[in-house]
Design a protein around this nucleic acid. Structure first.
Lengths: 215, 215
DNA sequence: TTATAATGACTGTCCGGTCAGTCATTAAAC
DNA sequence: GTTTAATGACTGACCGGACAGTCATTATAA
């Protein structure tokens, strides 16, 4: 009775590759919508519309809204930590160069990409997804801090650094990156700062502190 | 509607104090619920129940859910910045002591109180309340950074500090406090760190960096 | 044909906001 | 002191819109 609209229907995704590609489209769209509205206010109709599929299709790829969110986060946080673990601890480099390499990675692989938004989204929703927060802590935070700590300890061991504060609290070394991440999303619009220059200034300060002669 | 009605008989008119006290109860309850569920998932029935009133009563104190959230934030961020502006720039103190005084304030007046949760809530919801984010930026961030910058500039001017990085990016000085705030809410439960010791280590590093002799 | 990917109208639930009614309290009348 | 009238703070059942998730139907590939 209803005049059903004749709509072009997308060809069914039969191969595994097509399936993965469509899933990625859905995750990308979901990130957009979740970032804009937050988890609770994001409407699956909007996610579907942005992905160019019908709402029902979402449920062929993901069993619930919460699972969609989790898949989105999981797909974003897996990669780069492993890459950093591979590349940064170059034994021929000085501790300073290792630290700079790590910050370069941070800037190019996270702060300068969509992963930044995923991290921000995760931070914002973390208290509502304690399980996910724990995964993030275990897979990203712990591993990241372990790298930092090993760099700092190596710096102390080879006489390059005179202070052990970073070995004790590696959080202090990445704190400015967190500021950068949040500032970008919240205040950059009406009070822009030069993130790169800020992180450079941080490294300068940090090196002075770690290497400086005690007065 | 705004003018006081002329009445022959007075009803049990609650005093202004009682009214304020009840409003505060409602705001406290709202903070609990908002922290637990986030703005969107917080139910006004729960807020009312926790405050020990009926839902309708909320609307005698606040015109909408959003206004409730805003009132809550506003009531929490007004005070301490002004207090810091008064106390910290003691001209008889060294720049280092001023900085330490500021961190003492930060610990005792924000990180150690309920205000910490308000700030976290605000950070989490800020992208959904751009107007509120702007207020917070103007009333807290800008003023806080101004204090930091003036301390740093004074330190340089009187020869106490040799670096100007903090004057250029005062964000770097408070970055660890942000880490402390987020860590407390997200990870402290299963990976506790000694916040106070971390901030102390930060100040130690910062002083080394600012005062240290150039190599 | 058959199998199945895709669709979108539909359903049930949830919750912000409303408002007609209740009742404790007080001033006035006596 | 007692009764009565007036008040408005407070209540909670109710309403309407929104939206996650379902499923009968349709389009397409094999």
């Amino acid at each position: 009775m209803t005049a059903r609209q004749r709509t072009k229907r997308r060809a069914p995704a039969r191969s595994e590759d097509e399936r993965q590609a469509k899933l990625q489209t859905i995750l990308d769209s979901a990130l957009d919508i979740f970032l804009e509205k937050g988890f609770a206010d994001a409407r699956l109709d909007d996610v579907a519309a942005r992905a160019g599929v019908a709402k029902g299709t979402l449920y062929l790829y993901v069993p619930s809204k919460q699972a969609l969110f989790e898949a989105l986060v999981q797909s974003g946080i897996g990669g780069p930590v492993g890459a950093i673990e591979q590349k940064v601890p170059d034994p021929s480099a000085s501790a300073e160069d290792q630290l700079r390499a790590l910050f370069y990675f941070l800037r190019t692989e996270i702060l300068g990409t969509r992963r930044r938004d995923i991290v921000r989204l995760l931070l914002m929703e973390a208290s509502r997804f304690p399980e996910l927060a724990e995964v993030y802590h275990r897979e990203v935070i712990v591993r990241g801090l372990r790298i930092l700590r090993s760099i700092a300890e190596r710096g102390v061991a080879r006489g390059e650094f005179r202070s052990d504060e970073i070995a004790r609290f590696p959080q202090l070394a990445i704190a400015p990156a967190l500021v950068a991440l949040l500032w970008t999303s919240l205040f950059q619009r009406f009070d822009p700062i030069d993130i790169e220059a800020m992180l450079e200034a941080h490294l300068t300060l940090l090196m002075k502190a770690l290497k400086g002669h005690p007065s």
